[in-house]
Amino acid sequence: MTTLGSAFVAVTLALTAATPAGTSAGAAGEPSPAAAGAPAPDRSGGPAVVAHRGASGHAPENTLAAVDAAAELGVEWVEVDVQRAGDGELVVLHDNDLARTTDAAERHPDRAPWGLDDFSYPEIAELDAGSWYGPEFAGERVPTLGEVLDRMDEHGQKLLLEVKSPELYPGIEADVVAELREHGWLAPRTLRTSLVVQSFDAASVRTLHELAPRVRTGLLGNPPVARLADHAEYVDQINPRHTTVTADYVAAIQELRGAHGRKLQVNVWTVNDGPTAFALAGLGVDGIITDHPDVVRAALSSGVASPEPVS
Rank of each mutant, 00 (worst) to 15 (best):
E255F: 07
V11C: 10
E136F: 13
A66F: 02
V266N: 09
L64F: 03
A28S: 03
G146F: 03
R241Y: 15
M152E: 11
A38I: 15
Y121W: 05
R227E: 15
S120W: 01
V92G: 04
L220R: 04
N272W: 09
G54H: 10
N272Y: 11
L160T: 08
R107D: 07
V245I: 07
L191S: 03
V304K: 09
A178V: 01
P188D: 04
G88L: 00
L220P: 03
Y133W: 13
A25P: 14
Q254R: 11
H292R: 14
D294E: 11
Q157K: 08
H242I: 03
R206Q: 15
V92R: 11
L93C: 12
G37V: 02
Q254W: 05
D103E: 02
E162V: 00
V235A: 02
P20V: 05
A281K: 01
D118R: 13
V271I: 10
S131W: 09
R297K: 14
E123F: 14
I172T: 02
A299D: 01
G29C: 11
S56T: 08
G74Q: 08
V304D: 07
G86Y: 13
H209D: 00
T246S: 15
W269H: 14
A279M: 09
V304G: 04
A299E: 01
I172R: 02
A138T: 15
W114E: 03
Y234P: 06
G284E: 10
D95V: 13
S302F: 01
V82Q: 08
A38W: 15
N96Y: 14
L73F: 00
E136C: 12
E89C: 13
T3S: 07
R262K: 11
